[in-house]
Design a protein around this nucleic acid. Structure first.
Lengths: 224, 224
DNA sequence: CCTCTCTTTATTGTATACAAATGGCAACGG
DNA sequence: CCGTTGCCATTTGTATACAATAAAGAGAGG
């Protein structure tokens, strides 16, 4: 049985959090969401548990749910963890990747090149291909635990929004770093793959942090 | 509201998995567990979702639940992840730990020394103190994300069972490694703390793997 | 005027009934 | 004899009603 209602509620609530429609700290009431999604509280509760496990939602002592509020420190933590874990994934992938997966990665990065060199850059395509690129590496790493754990970090709201703020320079660097990863995979060089990936994620963190600072100074200026 | 029924179901099912009463691969039916716990299916479903998020339980395409079956490779993955993440935690803790936490760690390791030098060694006390020791380091690391992620790995069935197989030599080494960690914390040496912790976990892996091999060869001999 | 407590209200937890979907089995046809 | 198809039993998903608990507010006492 593919749970329609609970998946629907999950996707809907998640989208509302990602889009900012539900802002951090907002108190979440099950019944309100149930009406909003057109389902009963049961599947909504189900969705909330999943979102809680994925750190989209936090609960206080009295079991009340709130949209998780990520401090800048929390965000850096997430990136540090992601750098470590995706580095590990890349390392394992280098030793295990097969020809088909390598070909797919090569194709994907070619598509990414097209997207980032277009004018204006095609961010949407970049995001999709980039996502699949990383997913295939994770698949090639062949560790269910790693996949499970990483899925909890990769899709966090803040991480997700990062690429929205990429300028062309960052997009190009992403593409080149992917290309270097392909070289490391081709040579089955685990250490090289690991360090490239760790740096790749770390750069993404700085891209986010820079964009975040710009946004803050803008809003501070507007408030003054 | 402290959810009695769902917490109770969670604790009960988890205990059954840890004790081996529910063996890996076993198909889990919600209603059977509900009767067993004396509650309705609703809190059982809740508990199953939590256990699924913590990798105690897996679900197939048709949403059927099974007790997770950990291969030796999976187990090594878990230890590798744990070594990385607890290493990170130790590194952060070294920079942030306060006097009170350090004192508590010192006291705990003294208790551990007593437990491991007793004849016979007091495994139960060792487990409890060891658990708190690691918990305090995690707390001192001060990263909610790290805590969240690590809690999913530390309490896995296999990892939990490891210490049951420790011989006195391994228990003593655990104690000494803890002591070295205290030195690193006292000097606020992040790098040192990280490497000690990573080695500490890695040694625990080998202790497990050795015990596992012995068990397997025993059962193989019995089968022959 | 403040505070403490009791009552009221809002929100979450649990049970139960029913709907939907899956897996197995049997009967039919090739 | 094997494969396929459709039905039935089993299991999970959803809705709703009710119970339990925490938050909020009103009233009395200091």
């Amino acid at each position: 049985m593919v749970s329609r209602a609970s998946d629907q509620a999950y996707a809907r609530i998640r989208a509302m959090i990602l889009s900012g429609e539900l802002s951090p700290g907002t108190h979440i009431r099950e019944e309100a969401l149930a009406e909003l999604c057109g389902v009963s509280r049961t599947p909504v509760r189900d969705a909330l548990r999943r979102l809680e496990a994925e750190l989209f939602i936090e609960r206080n002592d009295a079991q009340r749910s709130f949209v998780a509020d990520w401090s800048l420190d929390d965000i850096e933590d997430a990136f540090v963890l992601r750098a470590m874990l995706e580095g590990l994934a890349a390392s394992r992938a280098a030793a295990r990747i097969n020809a088909e997966q390598l070909a797919r990665l090569t194709w994907l990065n070619a598509a990414i090149e097209l997207a980032v060199t277009a004018s204006p850059p095609d961010i949407q395509t970049f995001l999709e291909r980039n996502r699949e690129f990383h997913a295939i590496i994770l698949q090639a790493a062949g560790s269910a635990r790693l996949t499970n754990i990483l899925s909890r970090i990769i899709e966090q709201p803040v991480v997700w929004r990062t690429a929205q703020n990429y300028d062309r320079e960052n997009l190009m660097r992403s593409w080149r770093e992917h290309d270097e990863l392909l070289s490391a995979f081709g040579r089955r060089d685990s250490r090289w793959a690991e360090t490239i990936m760790a740096g790749h994620i770390r750069r993404a963190y700085h891209a986010y942090a820079d964009a975040h600072r710009v946004q803050r100074s803008r809003s501070d200026a507007a408030a003054a």
